[in-house]
Design a protein around this nucleic acid. Sequence first.
DNA 1: ATGTTTGTTAACCATATGGTTAAACTTAAT
DNA 2: ATTAAGTTTAACCATATGGTTAACAAACAT
Lengths: 203, 203
Amino acid sequence: MTKHKDNQTENQILNAAQHIFQEKGMDGARMQEIADKANINKAMLHYYYRSKQQLFEAVFKKAFSLLAPQLNAILNDDSSVEDKIKNFTHNYISFIVKHPYLPNFIIQELNRNPQFIAQLRTNVAFPTINKFKKQVKNEVDNGTIVSISAEQLFINILSLNIFPFVASPLIKAFTNVDDKTYKTLMEARKTAVSDFIINAIKK
Amino acid sequence: MTKHKDNQTENQILNAAQHIFQEKGMDGARMQEIADKANINKAMLHYYYRSKQQLFEAVFKKAFSLLAPQLNAILNDDSSVEDKIKNFTHNYISFIVKHPYLPNFIIQELNRNPQFIAQLRTNVAFPTINKFKKQVKNEVDNGTIVSISAEQLFINILSLNIFPFVASPLIKAFTNVDDKTYKTLMEARKTAVSDFIINAIKK
DNA sequence: ATGTTTGTTAACCATATGGTTAAACTTAAT
DNA sequence: ATTAAGTTTAACCATATGGTTAACAAACAT
């Protein structure tokens, strides 16, 4: 790839860019602000990443490749649907509490530029739903769970786990809850969400 | 309010601004683009709305006041929790299918500027969760539904209904589904989501 | 008819912004 | 020590952008 000797500056840039882009989005981010945060000259951004677009894409890919493995876990291991839901819910919420800007960043930028996902497909280990689909179908046929399509169940799992982090300002306002209480609510969701889902699909 | 004689131009501007802002967000939107879409001179934007910020706020308030009544319906009428869930899910999804940019726009801009919600509280009929809370508590005490906090149930309802529209590019990619099939999935959710929720909370 | 308020336009302005350049500095191989 | 490659900086550039101005047109009141 690059022939740079040390990658210290490059990493400083990428970290600074990550913070700024995730907080302000592509359009709201300023190259000067990223440079300031990285404590380097603005020209260095272009020296290492050529353009704002390319710097952004590097950040986006890094962010996406943090999320993808989480999904692959639920989709492609061999545990039962019930165990997957429990594990995913617990792990995912724990993960997001540490990276609160991530889901919103990815969703927002993907909405701004949907064809972006095509590039990810080739670069990152991209989650697919095929195995999960078979498994759900099996358990429906077994009678272990109620009749539901794997797609709808998958959407429900994602929705219940991700949305509360994406829409936190809105939900905080509606429920009239302060930041601290909201954190408690999110902690409780580590088990509450999987209980909810399992209740919904168990016969 | 304003002393303008006819509000034709003003409306043209607001509609154009709505489209552009909802598609590109505050930072991505350009005043010139809005003027072009409204077929008027850029100076008119400032004549009627003084600044980009104020034009944006007018658009945001209008958007928010489209969503708020939907929520007030579920929170403040007298039907049972089960009926509320059914009605809300059906009505809300029908509504969003017609305004696909709305939820993402509101969530995104609220994340960018969370103190914005304080201004809305005074201006718009702002939904509160109080009545819903009592109702859920009642039904839990009655034994009609399983033990769940009104906040968690409320978050779940919002998540399941809104998230699929906010994250559609992501979900489409993961489930490997085209636009047309996605629409079908969303149609199915008008009943599938309420069934799912009711299953989850019914004893 | 005349003056006044409101609406509209083209031209303009100051500044912000992504990006470039050319020179200087650092490092390490020869 | 010299050279060459990679790294860093300050100054610069072209353009985009939100916003303003001044002149003009239309509508309306007197």
